[in-house]
Design a protein around this nucleic acid. Structure first.
Lengths: 210, 210
DNA sequence: TAGATTGTTAATCGATTAACAATC
DNA sequence: TAGATTGTTAATCGATTAACAATC
């Protein structure tokens, strides 16, 4: 990063998106694109794309455009996706199972390396290629695994406690699927995926034809 | 809505959040709250809360605060959550199964009323209390069900086609779980939930101690 | 009445969009 | 060289935060 300054969160969120577009382009054997190409092909804003990249240096050549391979490689690196990131999963219910079996994760270099639950009926059972472990073991298990990302896939009522356990196991980044707000220390980053919130927003836009 | 004007998207997204906070308060038998209470209890910004509400009218009493019941009822209504909303699910894989079995949906008045897939091995099988139906039947099925919200839980490669089928079946609001951009007519609203994007953002914030 | 708290207007902040000089 | 397109600066837009008069 040439300048050590603040990258806007919307920019960061878009970077991951750009990556999927680049994968598509590679499949179609597109080697070079201009920001205008990207706008017409993928519905992104050309000016915004260039502005987003500008936080991280120079990526293209005036008059020519961008090399797709280079773009992909450099943005992957910015997002720390160049090597596999280990992820802990807490909650081996339906959602946890879906996440653990979600193939695109591997494609993007994320690997769920352990699954935990507090239900004695589940502990010891298999979840795909993982053995579900006792949440009480999370600290010692992660001393070995050294994962820094954790996923909360437990009911809302258990989310806060789960967050605290993850933090005590040295996880610093949490993806929370429970429909509730969790309090965490300021050095920990949380992203919240809330189906209900998304559906509620959609519901607002419903035509009132009844 | 007193004024027929533009509600900012961030405001809309927060409304759903506020609802879950109100549920909590009701459980704790809190009848009245001030915006300052909400700030200290739930980490929301008091000024922002009042501003958010202001788009929809007056909700509280100066010097007193807000009645939790009224707040909940009115915001539910604003989001069209006062009566059950029917939802179509396309994709009966792991993720689709998790969504169909996700209990909090019912609590918030969403009901998945039909599940579709294009895999002959799945069509006819049960997904919880639903029978998986052939995606080719979606138009005729939804002529009866009249759902206006659809969920895309298929692989990225099938997402665009699925979106088009949903639109042709008269769905106007789509929640897309596939990690890809989908093109839709301008009268249709799409919300995109992208695990990979969320993980990528978290990955960016990883400490570089290696 | 005095204290508390709303709803709203104004000030600040930050992100998006537009424009263009630099450059391939 | 002329045409295309970048990276960046400046202008615009919109959201957040602060402040306060109205009011319970």
């Amino acid at each position: 990063m040439p300048n050590g300054i603040k990258v806007p969160m919307p920019t960061l969120e878009r970077l991951a998106n750009y990556l999927t577009i680049f994968s598509d382009l590679k499949i179609r054997n597109v080697e070079t694109v201009s920001s205008a190409d990207l706008e017409s092909r993928a519905g992104i804003n050309a000016a915004q794309f260039r502005k987003d990249l500008s936080y991280f240096g120079e990526f293209g050549r005036p008059g020519i455009g961008y090399n797709v391979n280079e773009l992909q490689a450099r943005i992957s690196r910015i997002l720390n996706l160049q090597k596999t990131q280990s992820v802990l999963l807490v909650g081996a219910g339906n959602l946890g199972a879906a996440l653990a079996g979600y193939h695109p994760l591997r494609t993007e270099n994320f690997q769920i390396v352990a699954a935990f639950d507090n239900n004695p009926n589940k502990i010891g059972k298999q979840l795909w290629d993982l053995t579900i472990q006792d949440i009480d073991e999370i600290i010692s298990v992660n001393k070995v695994l050294q994962a820094r990302i954790g996923i909360i896939a437990v009911p809302a009522s258990a989310a806060q406690e789960t967050a605290e356990r993850l933090v005590s196991a040295n996880v610093v980044n949490i993806l929370n699927f429970a429909p509730t707000f969790i309090r965490i220390p300021s050095n920990v980053t949380v992203r919240h995926i809330d189906f209900l919130q998304e559906l509620a927003v959609l519901s607002y836009y419903l035509p009132e034809d009844d």
